[in-house]
Design a protein around this nucleic acid. Structure first.
Length: 449
RNA sequence: UCCUGAGUAGCUCAAUGGCAGAGCAUUCGGCUGUUAACCGAAGGGUUGUAGGUUCGAGUCCUACCUCAGGAGCCA
């Protein structure tokens, strides 16, 4: 082992292919170590990928060989070696190791807890801070970053202004979900936001096309693969936009995100195990199917008659999780279900002028049974109607005075939607559970680490 | 909140009511092309907690704790 700082150029594993035949330096960790007598096969990772090194005893100093031979997994190292193409390597390249400097060697008495074998969910979540280092989890976080960037990029390049709403709010935005409550100085209570929608309706009336992007919180005791208590939501709000225009916006938005992921993350999707053809079908030319609530209901009735779904859907009720799964499985692209019964939807949704019992709203259901990833609507723009809706829902009128002002002073038709980032990541990556889509998931039974 | 299931070595899991085991990880030894390498050896246990039944409980009963899956609600 050398204590000198190497003079070879530092590079990353992801770009090793550009340095074939050159001696380079990697800064990373020992991911795995196999040996065959006088031949060592250390695999290194550096956050961009993994690469197998080759260390024949005769090719390096006794010190380097012994250091690597006795190195513990996940110890941090700086490795110098020559990049060589090899058909036996999964990435096509191997590293002929010349020198190694150990930054920190993990002690024998405290081996790295996460092995390359299988682990249970509870153990992995308890060690999430270390689980993040595994190739699959790192790949998911890279795709997440691209999804978030592409989502913001779509609005930024289409004339939207980002206006982020407050995290601390004085009341329930929609008067429904359970909220996280806290003391706000003297006598007041504050709540963590569950949606920025009402606030960006205000900024939309100031700026025209706006969006917000930030964390939201739900204290619901939901315990499923689709729920987190803290999740990220991106929400556009646009003036003079009707429901049809909103569906077009959602379509362009999702297509852009999927296209961006396909452009730069094919290798990551392979590590994750996602079938890329399913995403290519979404990005391909062609509109997303649009289904009215009535049409979707009819589809479920027929499916039940054929014995394809267990429970009959009652007209007028919202769709359950198995219903959404069935509907989305009928299409290759995300399906947009619109005009639900107003009774099962939020108070701020505009009634359909052709049928006032329906709301001008849309749920976008992701393919492959991932359920609702986007929910949106045209908003009530009449002062009197909104006021009576607030009263009907037994919401405190005083708290919504500012929201009513938006209908008193230059009200216009406007629409918006919200997309849960984690559900989008789960769908695009093909994950079983949203807890893997965010660095540190907050769920009903877990707030550590 | 309701329904269902699971807690045994650091990890993943075995064990008819009758001596608490294996693989991986760790340590030691062997192997010049391994791909979660392989071969040999060693160390490693208050079977989630508290009671109960029994000659005898990881196993049966009761309560509790923790976690998971689903429902409802939602993105």
């Amino acid at each position: 082992m050398s204590t000198e700082i190497t003079t070879a150029p530092v590079t990353t594993i992801a770009t090793l292919g550009q340095h074939e035949g050159q001696t380079i330096t990697l800064r990373g960790w020992l991911y795995n170590l196999r040996s065959s007598g006088k031949l060592l096969f250390p695999t290194f990772r550096d956050g961009s990928g993994t690469i197998q090194g080759i260390v024949p005893k005769a090719a390096v100093s006794e010190e380097v060989f012994e250091t690597l031979k006795n190195l513990t997994l996940e110890s941090s190292v700086v490795v110098t070696g020559k990049v060589r193409a090899d058909s036996r390597a999964p990435s096509g390249f191997e590293l002929d190791v010349e020198n190694v400097t150990v930054t920190q060697r993990i002690a024998d008495e405290t081996p790295y807890p996460i092995s390359l074998k299988e682990h249970g969910v509870d153990f992995l979540m308890e060690h999430r801070h270390l689980w993040l280092r595994t190739p699959r989890q790192s790949a998911i976080l890279r795709v997440r970053a691209t999804i978030m960037r592409a989502a913001a990029e779509y609005f930024d390049t289409n004339g939207f202004i980002r206006t982020d709403p407050p995290i601390l709010t004085p009341n329930a935005c929609e008067g429904t979900s359970e909220l996280f409550e806290m003391d706000y100085f003297d006598d007041d209570k504050a709540y963590l936001t569950q949606s920025g929608q009402l606030y960006i309706e205000a900024t939309a009336l100031a700026l025209g096309k706006v969006y917000s992007f930030g964390p939201t919180f739900r204290a619901e005791k939901s315990k499923t693969r689709r729920h987190l208590t803290e999740f990220w939501m991106i929400e556009p709000e646009v003036t003079y936009l009707d429901l049809d225009g909103l569906m077009g916006l959602a379509e362009g938005f999702l297509t852009h995100i999927v296209t961006r992921v396909l452009e730069t993350h094919r290798a990551d999707l392979k590590v994750i195990g996602k079938e890329v053809s399913r995403l290519e079908a979404v990005a391909a030319p062609g509109e997303f199917p649009r289904l009215s609530y009535d049409e979707a209901h009819q589809m479920l009735v027929e499916a039940h008659a054929k014995g394809l779904i267990e429970n009959a859907h009652t007209y007028g009720d919202d769709f359950g999780s198995p219903d959404e799964t069935y509907i989305s499985n009928q299409f290759d692209k995300p399906v947009m279900v619109h005009r639900y019964p107003a009774e099962v939807k939020a108070f701020y949704m505009q009634p359909d002028p052709n049928d006032p019992t329906k709301a001008l709203c849309v749920d976008v259901l992701a393919p492959e049974g991932y359920g609702e990833i986007i929910g949106g609507s045209q908003r009530v723009d009449s002062y009197d109607l909104l006021k009576s809706r607030i009263e009907q829902h037994n919401l405190p009128l005083a708290a919504f005075q500012w929201y009513l002002d938006l209908r008193k002073y230059g009200s216009v038709p406007h629409s918006g939607f919200g997309m849960g980032i984690e559900r989008a990541v789960a769908w695009i990556c093909g994950l079983e559970h949203v807890r893997e889509t965010i660095p540190f998931a907050r769920t009903l039974n877990r707030i550590y680490p």
